[in-house]
Structures are given as C-alpha cells and as structure tokens.
Design a binder for these strands. Structure first.
Lengths: 152, 152
DNA sequence: TTTTCTGCAAACGATTTGCATACAC
DNA sequence: GTGTATGCAAATCGTTTGCAGAAAA
C-alpha cells in the first residue's frame, strides 16, 4: 500500500472531474514526489523546473498547484514568508498528521509526526458542532541550532 | 486582573523600545479592543477607521499592525484568503490558546477554547529539542450552518 | 531639537487573468 | 473535432518603501 500519491492517482482524479492529464501536471506532481518533506513555493517549483531544463510557464505552475490542491493531492500552507507553500498529502487522510515547527529566528521549518489531535478533534466536534475534515498545526519557537545563540 | 491589553500596556511597551505613543497607534489598538473575537485585516481596520471619520493612512495602519505584533499585543495569522489578519492577544501567554475553526464552504472563522496542547508541546520539546514559544492551530471543515447544504 | 512617525505616491512581489494558440481526449 | 490547458504579457492586489513634512519626547 503506497503511503503517498502516484501518477496513476493523478490520472484517476483528473478523469473524475473531466480534467486532462497533461505533461505539465505530471511534471509538477513529480517534483513533489522527488522532494519529500520540503515545502515548495510556486517559485521553488518553477526554479527546479528551470534547472531540469523542463521549464513550464509560471502561470501554469500556479494553476497546477491549485488544481492539485483541489484534488487533495497537495496541501497548501503558509509559513508567513509571503508566499504559499505546498507539500504532498498522504493518501490516507488520517495519516497525514504531522505538525510544523517554525523557527522564528532562522525560519527553518521542520516536521513533527503526531496523531494526538484525534481526541481533540472529537472533543471539538462534540462541543461545537463543527465537522472537522482536516487540520494544520504550527508551533513557533527556536530550533536546536538557534537556541544557543538566543541566550539574551 | 485584566485579561487583555490596555492602552497603558501599549504606552509601556512602546517606551521600553524607544518608540513613541501616537494617536494613530492608540486608535489602531482601540479598534481591536472594540472588536473582540474578530480577525481584522489591514483593509478591515482601514475601513473601520474611515467609517469612524478618523482615517489613518493605509501605510500607517500596516506599520502599526506590524509594530503591535512585534510588541506581542496583536497576533498575526493567515486564513488563506490572501491577506494577513490580526487579533488581540491575551496578556497571559499561557491563556491565549484558542483554535480556529475555518469553514471551507462559507469561509467563516470561529474560535474554540482549549489548552489540551500543553502536554503535546512538552512532548514535542522533549522529543525534538525544539523550544516552543507559541502555537497556532487551524481546523478545516464545515460549520453547523453549512453541514446541512453539504449532503452530497 | 532630535528622533521617530505619518501620509502620500511609487515600487514591489506574489498571484491571477485575458486571450490566442496548442493539445488531450 | 471539441473543450480544456498552456504560455505569454498585462492586470491585480496586498504589502512595503522613499521621502518630505509633522509630531512626540
């Protein structure tokens, strides 16, 4: 059982919505499969494509990122650096629960695997009547490396 | 004991950093005190000021919002609607832990009070060595009102 | 009076859009 | 063939910045 999306998943999800499987969309997805654990912006993707000598119009990159997000293949997120960033979702919607640790000094973003929020989600649904489909958690602080230089 | 910031806190924090107490900064803070539980953007604030006939240059609004955030009085956040939004922090850094429930259908953002993440934070610090200062949690799903119309 | 602020207008950078062409189905 | 996607350039929109005048300390 694959833990992440494949090109075949893309083809299938595109078909369901009468969208077309194009080389550009495949390439954009491939970039994310080739860069696990990274949080790529549209410019990042565009730059990687340029390096690969398989350039795609920036507007198409933006359109592909939005489409892949709509299809649930990518997850869109903001880390406060002025642009949207994306990463591949896990296929199982219950497994893609990792949190982001954002260092407010150096800006580095790392991940932390966890599923402790399951209980919390249930609790929130019960108390608020809100039907939760997904969540995003960001922790702000100082990464190991920056803690040394912080002692003020 | 006040649960939120006052004008006097602003004066004090500004002094500590040799910044000046200006009418504009007071007015911007006052807007937030007058609109508890709302998540105002720079444009929102600017619009409210216009309605109040106490207009302030938009650039100044942006500068005030950034300053107030730096002072820890406001909290900056993104809900994916293309602009930064702000709300007043609680004074006690341990009490300002409410989560945001974002309806992906109508876009409404509501709050949910909770402090269940304390344990989680400790756990993360132990396992990752990351020193956590703050966190933000967003839940995406359907609000009560939208659940009725979702049944697909 | 010295330094920091404000307001305006211009600059910016990320993202979106219109449109003619190219391509997937 | 038909409808959707691409690429380009122009437009948009939130936000930042330079600078001269205004105001706080």
């Amino acid at each position: 059982m694959p833990t992440t999306f494949t090109m075949e998943d893309l083809r299938q999800k595109l078909q369901e919505r009468q969208h077309k499987m194009t080389p550009q969309r495949q390439i954009v997805l491939q970039i994310f499969l080739d860069h696990p654990g990274e949080h790529l912006s549209a410019e990042d993707v565009h730059g990687i494509l340029r390096d690969n000598h398989s350039e795609i119009g920036l507007a198409t990159v933006y359109r592909s990122l939005e489409l892949l997000s709509d299809l649930g293949i990518l997850q869109k997120m903001e880390f406060g650096d002025g642009c949207s960033r994306y990463e591949v979702n896990a296929i199982d919607p219950d497994t893609h629960h990792h949190h982001h640790l954002i260092c407010t000094k150096c800006g580095k973003v790392t991940e932390f695997e966890d599923d402790l929020l399951e209980n919390l989600e249930q609790d929130i649904e019960n108390k608020s009547g809100f039907r939760i489909m997904d969540h995003q958690v960001k922790f702000f602080g100082y990464c190991k490396e920056c803690q040394d230089s912080v002692e003020d």
